[in-house]
Design a protein around this nucleic acid. Structure first.
Lengths: 211, 211
DNA sequence: ATAGCGCCTTGACATGGATCAAGTAATTGA
DNA sequence: TCAATTACTTGATCCATGTCAAGGCGCTAT
C-alpha cells in the first residue's frame, strides 16, 4: 500500500493495544472492520476440533489483515492473535468502504493485495498437499533468506513450535528434520539463528527431494 | 458478479473454445488477461515435481478465473485445463483494467469475489492440514449437497480420480473410504450418484470424526 | 452386442509423520 | 542469579495413507 494511502487510513483509524497471546478476533466473529499491524507480530490461524493449529499468516508492521469479511459482508474465516505486545490500527467497516469508493487507486491496490495473498495460499496448499516436511521447511528457510537480505544467516522470527504449526507439522518432527538437515551439512542451527551452508542443496530439497 | 457487469464484459471480450483435456494456461505463463467460463467445466491445479496433482478450483459457467496475475502484474501461480468441451470468455488485461477503473462498483464486486476465494482457500488449507481423508470427503459431499438443491441425492460433477486430487489423496484411498462410509450406513453410492442416508453422521465426520 | 480401454476397486505392503513419554536446554521473572 | 516455567529434543511406538500390483466393471465405438 502506498504511503499516501497509509496516511489517509491512519487519519481516520483508531489504534488498539494487544499483549502477547491476546486474541484480536475469533473465527466466526462478525467482520466489523479492517486491521493493520503498526508494531509487533500477529498470526492468523485455524484451530481444528481437537485443538490442533494451522497458521495461515504471520504478519509484521505494515501488513493489513481481516479484510475478507468486510468485502464479503460475512464473518471471519479464521482467528487472529498477537504473538508479542503489538499495536494494531483498526478501521471500522463503514469508514473503510467510504474510503475505497472515494479513493480511486486504493481499490486497485487492494485487489493487488488480495491477489498476492491468493498466490501465497496457492503455494501453501501446494506445499501441504504435494510436499513433505523437509521440503516445506527448506522452502520456508529460502523464503526467509529472500525476505531478510542477509542471505546466508537468517533469524527465525517465531518459535519452533509456531514454525511447526505454520508448515503443518509438530515440534518433534521439526526437531528431527532440522537434525537431518544439519547432518547433511545443509544448515547450521544456533537457537534462533540458521546459517545456510548449502543453498543449492536446500533448493533441491525444497522442490523435490527427501533427506 | 452482476448481470450488468457480465454484459459489459461480454461486449468487449473474445470467446475461446477448448476440448476436453486442453490446457487453458500453464503455471508460470504471463497473465495476459482474465477468463470466465461460459459453458463447460475447468480445473485450476498445481503439479508437483513428481507429477502429483492438487486441484485448487473446479469452475463451471459464470465463474471468473485467472485474474490474480492481472492485478499483481505477474505470472500464473497455477495451471488450468478444460475438463470437458468448454467455451471460455477472455478479456485482455488492458481492456479489463480500463473497465475496472471506469466502472465504479465493479471493483467492489471483484474485491468481494477475491475475498470469497480467500475464504475458500482458508477452508481448503484447514482441511488439508487439520482433517483426515474421511472428514475431507464428508465435507465435500456436504458442500455438494448445499450447492445442488436436491439435498439427499447428489451428483458427482467429476470423476473419482479428479475428486481424489481435489481433496488431496489418491483414488485407492477414496475408494476405501467410500466403502467404509457405506458400511457405516452414512451414504449409498451408485456410480456418479451419492445418496446421503445419515446427514448428521456425515456432519460429525466432517468436523472431527474418524470411521 | 462385444471388444477394448479407462476408471475404479481390492489386497498386500511400505513409510512418513503423529503421538506419548521422558529428559534437557533456554527464557523469564522475582 | 537462581528457581520456575516454557521451549525444545530424543526415543519408542503406532497408524493413516501412499504405493505397487492385479483384477473387475462399465462406457464407447464399431
Amino acid at each position: 500500500m502506498s504511503d499516501d494511502h497509509l496516511k489517509i487510513i491512519a487519519s481516520i483509524a483508531t489504534t488498539l493495544n494487544f499483549d502477547k497471546g491476546e486474541m484480536i478476533f475469533h473465527e466466526g466473529d462478525k467482520g466489523n472492520g479492517f486491521y493493520m499491524v503498526e508494531t509487533g507480530t500477529i498470526k492468523v490461524f485455524k484451530l481444528s476440533f481437537e485443538g490442533k493449529e494451522q497458521i495461515l499468516h504471520i504478519y509484521g508492521p505494515g501488513h493489513a489483515f481481516g479484510e475478507v469479511p468486510v468485502f464479503e459482508g460475512k464473518n471471519f474465516p479464521a482467528s487472529s492473535m498477537a504473538l508479542e505486545k503489538s499495536v494494531i490500527i483498526f478501521l471500522p467497516r463503514d469508514k473503510f468502504v467510504n474510503l475505497i469508493t472515494s479513493t480511486p487507486g486504493l481499490g486497485m491496490n487492494l485487489l493487488a493485495d488480495l491477489s498476492r495473498r491468493l498466490r501465497e495460499f496457492t503455494i501453501q496448499i501446494e506445499n501441504l498437499s504435494l510436499k513433505e516436511v523437509p521440503a516445506r521447511l527448506s522452502a520456508y528457510f529460502l523464503t526467509l533468506s529472500r525476505e531478510q537480505k542477509n542471505e546466508k544467516k537468517i533469524m527465525l522470527p517465531i518459535s519452533k513450535a509456531q514454525l511447526s504449526n505454520l508448515i503443518g507439522t509438530t515440534p518433534e518432527t521439526v526437531s528431527r528434520v532440522l537434525k537431518k538437515m544439519m547432518d547433511s551439512s545443509l544448515i547450521e542451527v544456533q537457537t534462533k539463528t540458521i546459517v545456510i551452508k548449502d543453498i543449492e542443496g536446500l533448493q533441491d530439497l525444497s522442490e523435490s527431494g527427501s533427506l
